[in-house]
């Protein structure tokens, strides 16, 4: 078990190191990093000071290790718009984003999983068909279209809810619904196919053939096994709590991390973009690590197998 744990943690650390390397390579490829991070109109002595501080006058390999060291010590550069620490700028926005993505995650799980399980247990019934149609629609309607339609109906036509901004909980309703519905659809579809696959397994037939009540077959045999693929996608959703609302925040002018990212990309504010990139990757890798460890709990077979060979 310890080996499994260490292996997974090592893999997670390697992945984060790759993301840092990616940021380094891309930053070097895109031009003179000192000039880019400091901005075109920075005074030359400031650029030189930055070069020395970040070791840009050194060979590339030394620079790479310096870069790594700076990131490990939390020095992610400054925003070129107002010169503030990029990390502070980004972390300030996290609560606003979580105020949308956490309730949305509850909607996704609370709506998507029961709907998927119900649809699988009543395959080809009317309820199953309705769930599937809604689920496919939820996947194919982009979040900005859904968001704008909700604004058109509930803000413009009916005037019940505000169309954007962040003044109170009423402002969060439409963005949370937009995020939640789309995710619930994805999760319902996923849960349904995971359940169907499990229900077709021989051990389910064995259990019901030997007289186990159907309710017990479902709760004791089917659900735990169907949980494994479902946990993967929930892990992905947890991992994208910080950055999963880029489009929706823009639709509703919600001042979260996603909105910050879009503005930073439009202004080519590279320090901020890089900071968000690393933060998101770290969150994602941690969430994936937890999922991997949960796998170990849910499926003892995976504890010893290093990696499945197939797709």
């Amino acid at each position: 078990m310890l080996r499994f744990l260490l292996g997974r943690i090592g893999r997670a650390a390697l992945t984060i190191a790759m993301v840092v390397t990616f940021a380094f390579v891309v930053l070097r490829l895109s031009g003179d990093p000192a000039q880019i991070i400091m901005g075109a109109d920075a005074p030359p002595e400031a650029v030189d000071a930055f070069r020395t501080a970040w070791g840009l006058d050194q060979p590339v390999w030394v620079q790479y290790f310096h870069y790594f060291g700076a990131i490990l010590s939390g020095d992610l550069g400054r925003s070129m718009r107002d010169g503030r620490d990029a990390l502070v700028l980004v972390t300030e926005r996290i609560p606003a984003t979580l105020a949308l993505t956490l309730p949305a995650l509850l909607i996704k799980i609370g709506l998507g999983i029961p709907a998927g399980i119900y649809a699988a247990l009543h395959r080809n019934s009317l309820a199953d068909r309705i769930v599937m149609v809604v689920a496919v629609a939820g996947f194919t309607v982009p979040s900005f279209v859904l968001g704008l339609l909700l604004v058109l109906v509930f803000a413009v036509q009916l005037g019940w809810l505000p169309s954007g901004g962040q003044e109170g909980w009423r402002h969060a309703i439409l963005p949370v619904i937009t995020l939640g519905l789309g995710g619930a659809a994805v999760l319902a579809r996923f849960t349904r196919s995971a359940m169907l696959e499990v229900l077709g397994q021989p051990y389910i037939r064995t259990a019901s053939a030997k007289g186990v009540p159907w309710r017990a077959v479902v709760t004791r045999h089917a659900l735990p096994n169907a949980a494994i693929p479902t946990v993967t996608i929930i892990g992905f959703m947890v991992g994208s709590l910080i950055a999963g609302a880029v489009v929706v925040e823009s639709v509703f002018s919600w001042p979260g991390v996603g909105r910050l990212l879009v503005v930073a990309v439009a202004n080519r504010d590279l320090a901020v973009v890089q900071c968000i990139l690393l933060l998101v990757a770290t969150t994602m890798v941690c969430a994936n690590l937890v999922v991997d460890l949960l796998y170990g709990l849910l499926d003892p077979r995976l504890r010893s197998a290093p990696r499945r060979a197939g797709a």
């Binding site: 992945t15 984060i16 490829l29 880029v246 990212l261 990309v265 080519r268 990139l277 890798v285």
Partner: peptide
């Protein structure tokens, strides 16, 4: 496989936005 892990570690939209910001 390490590259596969790397792509799985980033939501694609974020990766795409970063590359557009850089280039």
């Amino acid at each position: 496989l390490a590259l596969v892990d790397f792509s799985a570690s980033l939501p694609f939209l974020i990766l795409a936005l970063s590359v557009l910001a850089f280039f």
